[in-house]
Design a protein around this nucleic acid. Structure first.
Lengths: 113, 113
DNA sequence: TTGACGCATACCGATATGGGAATATGATTG
DNA sequence: CAATCATATTCCCATATCGGTATGCGTCAA
């Protein structure tokens, strides 16, 4: 095996820097494929492919608008990622606390370090 | 090019389900490579390789303990991910609001749908 | 209907990935 | 030093990825 399919997995979908850029751009509003490509400096097929991935994991939704196809943000799928990382929040500033506790413990134990 | 190096990029590092499992496991405390492998049902080289990736992106720290090498969580690196996804928080429950606004707009315009 | 436009897909190449097995490296013990 | 245990690395395979170019397909206008 090589890697979990990029589709069907939000974590993989946002592992791509360009896809993250697309999501950030779409926060400003809907964009057509061409617009995405232009504003982010990628080729049209490139934008289309990334948008497809994002669509398949549900981070983006498309709707027809004449000849164009407008993509809009559907960020609900980012919530699990936010929550998963949030599960580590208590460890973020704990580093120094832990060291501190360790030092305190040393003192208490009476061992000269 | 194929893909951004899995190392040097936290987003890529946590794109792997097994690596996420490792991080979750390490929340309970330090583990040796063998322990990680056993508790998560992976081979020793497999665990070692994943831990290496996690170490290179700074999500994990290792220290010597005799013959063993204990890996501990260093979750600070997850913070950027949490914050990045947090930047989309305002869009999470907006979906229905938007649909609503759209419907309202249709009514105003007077078009029978 | 034909042409133009917007987008999606197919194809290709270079590369990186994850997994397994075998092996190398490192540290500890006797 | 030799033997052993713990971990890291290497090699190999199958596969998936991204990027680009070319091409197909759908939609709209004349």
């Amino acid at each position: 095996m090589a890697r979990a399919a990029t589709t069907s997995d939000v974590f993989n979908a946002i592992a791509e820097p360009q896809r993250r850029e697309i999501l950030a751009l779409l926060r400003e509003g809907e964009r057509s494929v061409t617009e995405v490509a232009q504003e982010l400096g990628m080729t049209q097929p490139g934008a289309s492919k990334h948008l497809r991935v994002l669509r398949e994991v549900g981070l983006v939704r498309d709707r027809r608008a004449g000849k164009q196809r407008l993509y809009g943000l559907h960020a609900d799928g980012l919530r699990p990622v936010h929550e998963w990382t949030g599960g580590f929040e208590q460890f973020w500033n704990e580093s120094f606390d832990r060291l501190d506790a360790y030092v305190q413990d040393l003192k208490q134990t009476g061992r000269a370090e």
